[in-house]
Design a protein around this nucleic acid. Structure first.
Lengths: 139, 139
DNA sequence: TCAATAGTCAACCATTTGGTTGAATATATT
DNA sequence: AATATATTCAACCAAATGGTTGACTATTGA
């Protein structure tokens, strides 16, 4: 049961993708690639960083499957590979209902909170007013 | 101009959010919080990890603004705070057109690639056939 | 053939990360 | 008052991260 829970989140894809996106230089590189294919040195020049440094970042992006590279002679052309970004967005979509404020969603959220309340007051019946200062305060 | 480019991506919010999401334990904690408010020890138990370890993860999530905490006596209740996830999704939305295959999007992509090609051949006029084996190769 | 260009690789470095343990703090319970 | 519970804190550790430099490889151009 614990194992079940863990396995459900053993998604190394997402680990790598989110980690790749957590660096501003790498996000800038990705953004640059939306304009089209770019060579490694083209990608490196805007940054106050050695070529080797930029090369490392590109390799991280490649490792996360966000960039593809094709070598032509001595120059390496990098291309945005967006599929894995779609996976990341798909993961985020699960949480959409927690920031959308549409009424039917709100209703569902309230129902879930009630269930949560019920369950937590089973565990500690002495504090029934537990979540009085949560999103439940619908003013 | 270089500075412009850098500033555009100085979004420490996103740094923190994506970094928080890059760890499977933390994603599992977030998922758990979709079921409702949870205490720190409730969140910690499913993981093969000390309480202090889990506490650290929760603090990372809090630092990224993904979790809010309200203390009641000795117990700390954690709550999902999805707004920053929305920001992350917003960032990803910029890249949607690169994985959607709707025809009008494709058309736009091709137009942009042309512009990119034009620009890069300004920079290095000797390689006009640069992106012959890119997404441009439409079967 | 020789020099310049494009890029990687390996070694190194400081900092961050993800984890631990043991002690400390604060609240509940008996 | 004494004990148990919930949690943090501080110190520590190994590994990963983001960066550097210098040497190496391979291709291109003169």
């Amino acid at each position: 049961m614990i194992l079940n829970h863990m396995v459900e989140f053993q998604t190394p894809h997402l680990d790598a993708v989110f980690h790749a996106l957590s660096d501003p230089t790498r996000r800038a590189i990705l953004h640059r690639l939306t304009e089209g294919e770019r060579t490694v040195s083209e990608l490196a020049t805007p940054f106050n960083m050695s070529l080797a440094g930029a090369s490392k970042h590109i390799k991280v992006l490649e490792g996360a499957g966000l960039v593809r590279r094709h070598v032509q002679g001595r120059t390496h052309y990098c291309q945005l590979e967006a599929a894995r970004l779609a996976e990341a967005q798909e993961w985020l979509r699960t949480y959409e209902r927690f920031w959308t404020t549409r009424l039917d969603d709100l209703e569902e959220i309230l129902r879930e909170e009630d269930r949560a309340l019920a369950r937590s007051s089973e565990q500690s019946p002495s504090s029934p007013a537990k979540s009085d200062n949560t999103s439940r305060s619908k003013k």
